Computed example of a mutant assay.
Amino acid sequence: MTKLTLGAHPYMLGFEQLERMLERSAKSGNEGYPPFNIEQTSQNSYRITLAVAGFGEGDLAITVEDRQLVIRGRQRDDSDERIYLHRGIAARQFQRSFVLADGVEVGEAIMENGLLHVDLTRAQPEMVVQKIKINKG
C-alpha cells in the first residue's frame, strides 16, 4: 500500500510547502513548557496565551520568521546574587513556534498577570473568478 502525501495527491496542486511546514512544526521541539492556550476570539481572530510567570517583558521576544510565529523567553540567572535554601522555580529558557497560514497576521502582544497574550487576525481573501481563454492550437 502506497502512502499518499498531501503534496502527491493528484487534486491538490502546489501544497508541497504546506506539507513541509507541517513537518517542520512537528520537529520544532516544542516541549510542554510553557503551557499555552489557543482560543478563537471571533470568526477571523485568535489569541495565543502563554503562562510566563517570572518573565518580564524584557525577557521575552516575539518574531515572525518565514510564516512562523516564534516566542522566546530567556531569564537572567541571578544565582550569584542570592543564596537559595531550596530552588524549585527554575530560571530556564524556552522557544514556542506556531506555523501561520497565509493571510494570518500577528497583532499586539499584551503581558497581564504572568500571562502573555498574542493576538492574531486572518484577513478574508476576496473571491476572484478568472476566465481562461482557450486558444486554437
Rank of each mutant, 00 (worst) to 15 (best):
M127H: 07
A101R: 08
L85I: 09
N113W: 12
G103S: 01
Q124L: 15
A90P: 08
E108F: 03
R87W: 15
A91Q: 08
D102C: 10
E112F: 09
H117Y: 02
V104L: 11
K131T: 11
G107Y: 03
H117R: 01
G103Y: 00
L85E: 08
T121P: 00
P125W: 04
I89D: 05
D119V: 04
I89S: 05
V129E: 06
T121R: 03
A90M: 12
L115V: 05
A90V: 11
H86M: 15
E112I: 10
V99P: 15
R87A: 13
N113D: 14
G107N: 06
N113A: 14
P125G: 12
P125R: 03
E108Y: 02
D102K: 10
M127D: 10
A109V: 06
E126D: 13
I89M: 11
Q95N: 08
R122M: 10
G107T: 07
F98T: 04
L100N: 08
H117V: 02
A90K: 09
Q95R: 13
G107Q: 08
G103H: 00
K131Y: 06
S97M: 05
M111P: 13
T121V: 04
V104M: 09
L100K: 04
G88D: 05
V99C: 13
G88I: 07
R122D: 12
V106S: 03
E112W: 11
R87K: 15
R92C: 01
G88N: 05
V99E: 13
E112T: 11
D102S: 15
L120Y: 02
Q130A: 14
Q93T: 03
Q130S: 12
K131Q: 12
Q124C: 14
M127K: 07
R87D: 06
A90Y: 09
A101N: 11
D102A: 14
Q130C: 10
E108N: 13
V106Q: 05
H86Y: 15
M127N: 08
E105S: 12
L120F: 00
D102R: 12
L120V: 01
L116A: 02
G88Y: 09
N113Y: 14
D119T: 12
A90C: 08
G88V: 14
D119K: 09
R96A: 02
R96G: 01
M127Y: 11
I132S: 05
H117C: 01
E112K: 13
F98A: 02
V129K: 09
V118P: 00
R96D: 05
I132D: 05
E112N: 12
Q124N: 07
P125E: 10
L85M: 07
Q95C: 10
H86C: 13
M111A: 08
L100M: 11
V99I: 09
D102N: 13
M127F: 09
I89A: 07
Q124V: 15
V104Y: 10
D102Q: 13
N113K: 14
I89C: 06
